[in-house]
Amino acid sequence: MKLLSLKMCLTCLVVLAFSLPFIYPQYGSGFLEELEMLGVGGAVALFAVFLVFVYFYCRDLSRTLALVSPERRAAAPGSVWLMFLIPYNFVEDFFIVHNVARSIEREAAANPQLNDLRGNGLFSGIGWCVAQIVSLAPGMIGKTASLIAIILWAVHWRFVRQVNTRLASAPGRERPTDASAVPSQLLP
């Protein structure tokens, strides 16, 4: 309960950051400038494309957790779908990335398929989460952080896909069912 309360308080800070361009327009329009440039139709289309990418990213994260032995999982495969709860996801993303990294690390300690793995994805994962938060800042700081977040997100996603390929190709390994890729069970 304390952790959920902390997450909700931090989410309130994210909402405040989102609202800064409305409260203090003199400091810059932040993400509103990009929305203005795109127009309503362009902004809706960009957001829809973004959600499609998030869906496939979440599916891969869920697959990672499903491929990790249940006793080594730090979270249930379905928990990654909390990334769709905007603006709560800005906070929850840190926990999702951390749990996936912990699960990969635990699996790597016992699974020879991951012996030569470089890291557990935590650096790029937390990196994109931090950059995502900083991207809410107005001006060049926010724009630069947005670009960094996208790059680190892509790096993390590539890492996760590599882990999935290795784990799925393990001898005698059953492929997870499609049920592991849907938010049917959010808790471990």
Score class of each variant (00 low, 15 high):
residue 44 V to L: 10
residue 44 V to D: 03
residue 44 V to C: 06
residue 44 V to G: 02
residue 45 A to I: 11
residue 45 A to S: 08
residue 45 A to M: 13
residue 45 A to W: 04
residue 46 L to Y: 12
residue 46 L to C: 10
residue 47 F to N: 06
residue 47 F to S: 13
residue 47 F to L: 13
residue 48 A to M: 12
residue 48 A to W: 01
residue 48 A to R: 05
residue 48 A to I: 06
residue 49 V to P: 03
residue 50 F to Y: 12
residue 51 L to D: 02
residue 52 V to T: 05
residue 52 V to G: 07
residue 52 V to D: 04
residue 53 F to K: 05
residue 54 V to E: 04
residue 54 V to D: 01
residue 55 Y to R: 06
residue 55 Y to Q: 08
residue 55 Y to I: 07
residue 56 F to S: 03
residue 58 C to N: 13
residue 59 R to T: 10
residue 59 R to C: 11
residue 60 D to W: 08
residue 62 S to C: 10
residue 62 S to V: 08
residue 62 S to Y: 06
residue 63 R to Y: 05
residue 64 T to H: 04
residue 64 T to G: 00
residue 65 L to N: 12
residue 65 L to A: 03
residue 66 A to P: 01
residue 66 A to N: 06
residue 67 L to Q: 05
residue 67 L to T: 01
residue 68 V to E: 04
residue 68 V to I: 07
residue 68 V to P: 00
residue 68 V to D: 02
residue 69 S to Q: 14
residue 70 P to H: 11
residue 70 P to W: 12
residue 70 P to A: 08
residue 71 E to I: 12
residue 71 E to K: 14
residue 71 E to V: 10
residue 71 E to F: 11
residue 71 E to W: 12
residue 72 R to F: 15
residue 72 R to G: 05
residue 72 R to D: 12
residue 73 R to V: 13
residue 73 R to L: 14
residue 73 R to M: 13
residue 73 R to E: 15
residue 74 A to N: 14
residue 74 A to I: 14
residue 74 A to D: 09
residue 74 A to C: 07
residue 74 A to M: 10
residue 75 A to R: 13
residue 75 A to G: 09
residue 75 A to P: 03
residue 75 A to Q: 14
residue 76 A to R: 07
residue 77 P to L: 07
residue 77 P to S: 12
residue 77 P to C: 12
residue 78 G to D: 06
residue 78 G to W: 01
residue 78 G to T: 10
residue 79 S to E: 12
residue 79 S to Q: 08
residue 79 S to I: 00
residue 79 S to L: 03
residue 79 S to P: 01
residue 79 S to G: 05
residue 80 V to C: 08
residue 80 V to L: 07
residue 81 W to C: 00
residue 81 W to Y: 10
residue 82 L to I: 14
residue 82 L to M: 10
residue 83 M to W: 07
residue 84 F to I: 11
residue 85 L to E: 00
residue 87 P to N: 09
residue 87 P to A: 06
residue 87 P to S: 07
residue 87 P to G: 04
residue 89 N to A: 07
residue 89 N to Y: 02
residue 89 N to K: 00
residue 89 N to P: 02
residue 90 F to C: 01
residue 90 F to I: 01
residue 90 F to W: 06
residue 91 V to L: 02
residue 91 V to S: 00
residue 92 E to A: 14
residue 92 E to N: 09
residue 92 E to I: 15
residue 93 D to I: 09
residue 93 D to C: 04
residue 94 F to C: 02
residue 96 I to W: 00
residue 96 I to E: 01
residue 97 V to L: 08
residue 97 V to R: 01
residue 97 V to N: 00
residue 98 H to Q: 11
residue 98 H to W: 13
residue 98 H to F: 15
residue 99 N to Q: 14
residue 99 N to F: 05
residue 99 N to K: 15
residue 100 V to H: 03
residue 100 V to W: 02
residue 100 V to D: 04
residue 101 A to F: 03
residue 101 A to H: 14
residue 102 R to T: 06
residue 104 I to S: 04
residue 104 I to G: 03
residue 105 E to H: 11
residue 105 E to N: 13
residue 106 R to L: 11
residue 106 R to E: 14
residue 106 R to Q: 08
residue 106 R to G: 15
residue 107 E to V: 09
residue 107 E to I: 03
residue 107 E to Q: 11
residue 107 E to K: 11
residue 107 E to W: 10
residue 108 A to R: 13
residue 109 A to I: 05
residue 109 A to Q: 13
